[in-house]
């Protein structure tokens, strides 16, 4: 009698980046599409994000970055996820990411980078197609 499970996704703003309009739009859009969205707020330390992903047993981590620090913070987050035994959690990046950095990020293990103007439908479809690597 188990239910149709909703994917759990943590959306995070990391470091000194106060621009949260985008992440809130995505949070709302994913919620409306049936996902369980956990949003812990602005100015999160990477360690705090990892803790949230662990305690919430998230399937996905979406990182929103508009501060240009993605090449520092994303590798650190991915490394810490692995160290915490959370290598199965899918990582998405959104925000202002220069074209040239996208291949580097995907090489690090980011599943997908969504830039400005991405239709909500694209993110929803990507998550639906990818599903959860956590729960078969």
């Amino acid at each position: 009698m188990s239910k149709q499970p909703s994917l759990r996704i943590v959306l995070a703003k990391v470091g000194l980046d106060g621009h949260d309009r985008g992440v809130k739009v995505v949070a709302r859009g994913l919620r409306d599409a049936g996902f369980h969205v956990i949003y812990p707020g602005l100015w999160q330390a990477p360690e705090a994000v990892i803790r949230t992903v662990a305690d919430e047993d998230a399937d996905w981590l979406g990182i929103s970055l508009l501060s240009g620090t993605h090449m520092t913070l994303v590798p650190r987050l991915i490394e810490q996820l692995r160290e915490a035994g959370l290598g199965h959690v899918g990582v998405l990046v959104g925000g202002i990411i220069p074209e040239a950095d996208i291949p580097k990020l995907t090489e690090l293990g980011v599943a997908r980078v969504f830039g400005p103007g991405t239709p909500m439908e694209d993110i929803v479809q990507f998550l639906r197609d990818s599903g959860s690597r956590t729960h078969a």
Binding site: H36, P40, G41, A48
Partner: peptide, 24 residues
């Protein structure tokens, strides 16, 4: 849709180094 926006953590302490607190 069954979707949910779970935002209570925004107002809760973030203590990643403290094993004595668990928020779900």
């Amino acid at each position: 849709t069954g979707g949910a926006l779970l935002g209570d953590r925004v107002r809760m302490p973030s203590r990643p180094d403290d094993p004595g607190i668990y928020i779900r």
